[in-house]
Amino acid sequence: MEISIMTALNQGLMWGILAIGVFVSFKVLDFADMTCEGSIAMGGAITAITLQAGLHPLLAVLFSLLGGAGAGLITGLLHTKLKIPPILSGILTMTALYSINLRIMQDRASITMLNVKTLTSGLTDALVGSGLPYKYGVQVSNMIIALIFVGLVIGVIYWFFGTEFGCTIRATGMNPKMCRAQGINTNTTIIVGLMISNALIALAGCLISQMQFNTTVSMGTGAIVIGLASIIIGEAMTGKKFSFWAKLAMLVVGSIIYRLVITLILMIPGFNTNDLKLLTAIIVAIALAIPAIKGGAKPLIQKFIGKKGGNENA
């Protein structure tokens, strides 16, 4: 029980980085970027190969960031230079990445990373050496590493979007016409924004695969929906006065809550992990439908409580 809760927390933290990445493209840039599903798997693929080659795990992180940024660059170029609509640009890159990821993984659909040095292995060994049972040692070290990376990502993203250049990316998502009038090259800002978004998503893939000692070419399926679920949950808990870094932190909290909810549901007899994506889709659909449900239910509610007129401002 406590192990599954700990796993959920760790998963939530790592997938929280993906949520921040999806947030950057979907919310900050207002660009519905589907590249995500390919770039997270790319992060996993790059990591598996790098670690199997015996290279330092931090190099796997670096290569994943670069790979993700490259994927974002392609989507950005497809959209800005070739004028392909955002969704289609992302789908094209995502589709291409499936083959590319298989190539990176040397034509294997799944790689298990046992007996390789990962970001957490050193820490795990130390913890186990100090007397902690292995199954806890793995989770605790995962959590420490995950917290460090989440903190770093929130810090860097907060700083970046506060800089002169970062501000132009935020403005591009809000009002591209105004940006061009203010001398901002919106093609550049869109491309850089997508590169950052996908670099983060690939980083999430890198960390997740290290944590699970395994990566598959299809690990990205449904990643966008998971990211959106985390964003929706996170934003629901975000107050108006929250500063930007707090909003980013709430995305990670959203991601953790999502994982906990899923974990709890899967504990109900009759459910198994294969139902995960279905449950995710249902959660997101419900969350997205809340405004419509509220609006649709209002006349009914009014009918029951016998109020006439109702609140016209609502």
Binding site: G162, T163, F165, G166, G183
Partner: peptide, 11 residues
């Protein structure tokens, strides 16, 4: 900053 280089300095 219209017409100027936009850097990584605080915005």
């Amino acid at each position: 900053r219209r017409g100027k280089q936009r850097t990584l300095k605080w915005g």
